[in-house]
Simulated scan of single mutants.
Amino acid sequence: MYITVTRQHMDQTFSQSSADFVTYLEKENKGKSFDLQEHFFDQYNDRISPEQVIAEIDGNTAKLKKREPKFYSLTLNPSQRELKAINNDPTLLRRYVREAMKDYAASFYRKTPVSVDSIKYYAKIEHGRTFKGFDKKVKENQPYRAEIARLNNEIRKIHRGELQGSIKKRQKQIEKLIEQTLHKIDGVPIKQGMAKPGLQTHVHIIVSRKDVTNRFSLSPGSSYKESEAKLNGETVKRGFKRDQFFENAEKTFDKLFGYDRNFAEHYRNRKTFVRDPTTYFAQLTGLPVSERGLALKILNESGLNVPNLNIPANKVQLAVKTFHKLKRAMQVAQKSTSIEI
């Protein structure tokens, strides 16, 4: 489960309306009948119109300045393994979102605990993802695509009489380049905008910066970490315990669906991977053979191409360099699950 928290972001100031973002989240509903569409939902309602979402979010911004975000975006990104565990069932996913939002509310550091009923949020399930320009497979395919584009341009020029040469020769070169391209789906080279294969269901959640009373600010941003400050002579608790939210949201999924989470799927271990590959590697090599094998499979399926690590734990340093190379790949993978709004 990858969870991201992104603030509304538009250069130096913030849009006064959520309309553009809500419209963006409606993209999968285009051309579908009402009954086949995925609707916005909140803690208690399954069908909320985009117009109501915009009105509720835009009307809940009292005393927020132009340079302050009006809302935040959360994305809950179950892995394909997690989606298989719930049969990719949107009803179960909505149930999970509602429980996870209780974890979200409880992660605010306040004198009086925050409940989910204090949060104004609207969620939307999406079923597909497309390859982005920064995806590893797209970048590795780019030299082949550039050469194919050059040859196609030459073919067009020959047709127009602007260039002399053999069209057949260039067509054969293109066929060879397509065959040599590193990453393909059903024989078609992967490029930006192409749909990703397999289960890609995920959830976007738009959360108001203000609570339901439109009086108190509830910011989960990284700038608002758990802290205490003096206000009018009184100690005030503020901030958001992001690590607690991520870990509890994982535990909630496991408890709801009896999911057996592997070492490689734990948020705390992924965090160790990024910050301290040496420790992560030592822990991984110390796992029982079956669990380590599954962890390596999960890592490889994520696109990290981890080599076979069935070596004694006392030889950890021999392969630490591999994990340092993977660190950047992990960071890129994490970025691909979030969007700017």
Rank of each mutant, 00 (worst) to 15 (best):
T61K: 08
T23Y: 01
R110P: 02
T278V: 05
N262R: 09
Q52G: 05
Q80E: 01
R95P: 03
Y96E: 13
E38Y: 09
N308P: 03
R292A: 15
E247N: 03
Y280G: 02
P220C: 13
L309G: 03
S49R: 09
R129N: 00
V316S: 14
A149I: 02
T337Y: 09
S166R: 06
G303C: 05
T13Q: 04
R215S: 13
D117T: 07
K27D: 13
N305C: 09
A85F: 04
A249W: 01
K136Q: 13
F40V: 00
N248Q: 14
K136Y: 12
R261L: 07
T278W: 01
V97R: 06
L163W: 03
N232D: 15
I174Y: 08
R270S: 06
S79Q: 03
K120Y: 07
P90Q: 11
N88H: 04
H204D: 06
E247W: 01
K191G: 13
N248M: 10
E38D: 13
F71D: 13
K297P: 03
A55W: 04
E226G: 12
I341E: 12
I339N: 05
Q52M: 12
F257H: 09
I311V: 15
V53F: 07
L304R: 02
Y121F: 13
T4N: 13
T91Q: 14
L64T: 06
G193R: 06
